[in-house]
Amino acid sequence: MNIFRLCGDLSHLLAILLLLFKIWKTRSCAGISGKTQLLFTIVYTARYLDLFTSFVSVYNSVMKIVFLTASYGTLYLMFYKFKPTYDHNHDSFRILYLIVPALVLSFIIVHVYTVMEILWTFSIYLEAVAIMPQLFMVSRTGEAETITSHYLFALGSYRALYILNWIYRYYTEDFLDWITIMAGIVQTILYCDFFYLYITKVLKGKRLSLP
């Protein structure tokens, strides 16, 4: 554990809790992509199956359980409790275009050919692109609520901080995993446009709206 990794995890946790808070407080999931939330739930489920097979630390297990619970809770709120507020007309990104390539790639570029390892690798690839339906939705509606913008910023920062963590681990532990690094870089690049809009608009107190 290093400071970048810790800040990354906390940023990730903050993002997930912010989203739940927003939906609960406004009693609405308007502007939130159910497809992105579904993809994240698939990501956590595929990756955290190792809760049953290996123990790393209490911190690690607790965070995994929180992420899993929160993502299933978000799906429950979006597709059941507040379903009438879900803006599915604007959530039209085809997620099979993300799932299928991620699955194929996880059979081609993977460290070890075991079911758990392929699922883990699939989750890494899918996470890298899971935000695309949400960004697509923001571009279609041309705007995002301020709290949604904070959510996206925290979620994007998490993987960017992980990149710093991997650089740090390379120097201190001589540790390098190209699968997570490349996927993490792709993931962070996808947020760049959004980061720019967030810094130039939201931080100056303006609502995030596209020109």
Binding site: H12, S54, K64, F67, H111, R169, D174, I179, T180
Partner: peptide, 10 residues
Amino acid sequence: KSNQLTKDEL
């Protein structure tokens, strides 16, 4: 190098 170290990340 083994990727097992990555598994301690989230």
